[in-house]
């Protein structure tokens, strides 16, 4: 079954936002106007916001080169190596919602610098959301004696981006969290992540 939950990641990490925007934190803090613009952008994320994640756990069957997840079969040497001792895979989709896309579009009309920083902030937020979710899952599985592999997304390594299609269907993303897939396989809202994590029980 697919679960939906809302999570509140810790407050934005300024240096990460700056790096995503293409500037070293040292250079940014030494600039006469960037720090105040950054704070202004961060005020958009000042209220702790709850963002949505939907996820499901799927049994994994490995036969030869093929990885069978029940909803789709894929062949990926990278995932075969990563998941070789796993019997289950946790798949999830996370989004910080349309408000970041709207804020960026709004800023584009009057300040591209602001748009750049807000875009970076959105990227930082969705990564923070994924980290929060994965930590929570890691803690939960640790109590059952299981470890989670690093997260792996369609488009990484040899996992084709087109795996987004079965993944979206299996996770029922649009209905659960309002996350949709475009024809180009990009996602809307744009500040979103889909990924999979192998679950390895230590007894295995």
């Amino acid at each position: 079954m697919i679960h939906t939950l809302t999570l509140t990641p810790p407050p934005p990490h300024r240096d990460t936002v700056l790096r995503y925007a293409g500037i070293s934190p040292a250079a940014a803090y030494g600039d006469p106007s960037l720090p105040s613009l950054l704070e202004d952008c961060l005020s958009l994320a000042a209220e702790p916001s709850a963002f949505s994640v939907c996820y499901g756990v799927f049994p994994l069957r490995i036969s030869g080169e093929d990885l069978d997840l029940g909803f789709a079969t894929l062949s990926s040497a990278d995932l075969l190596a990563l998941w070789k001792d796993c019997r289950h895979v946790l798949a999830f989709a996370a989004t910080v919602g349309l408000s970041f896309d709207r804020a960026v579009a709004r800023a584009e009309a009057h300040s591209p610098t602001r748009a750049l920083l807000l875009d970076a902030l959105g990227s930082e937020r969705v990564e923070a959301l994924c980290d929060t979710f994965c930590q929570r899952m890691a803690t939960q599985y640790a109590s059952e004696g299981a470890l989670l592999t690093p997260r792996f997304s369609p488009g990484y390594g040899d996992l084709p981006l087109s795996f987004q299609i079965p993944l979206f269907q299996a996770l029922d993303c649009s209905r659960r969290i309002g996350l949709t897939l475009n024809q180009s396989l990009s996602m809307s809202p744009s500040k979103s992540v889909t990924a999979m994590v192998g679950i390895r029980y230590q007894s295995q």
Binding site: A21, S24, D31, S111, T113, L116
Partner: peptide, 11 residues
Amino acid sequence: VYLPQLLMSAE
């Protein structure tokens, strides 16, 4: 000069 600074100058 970094990208945000280039942009601010352009603005």
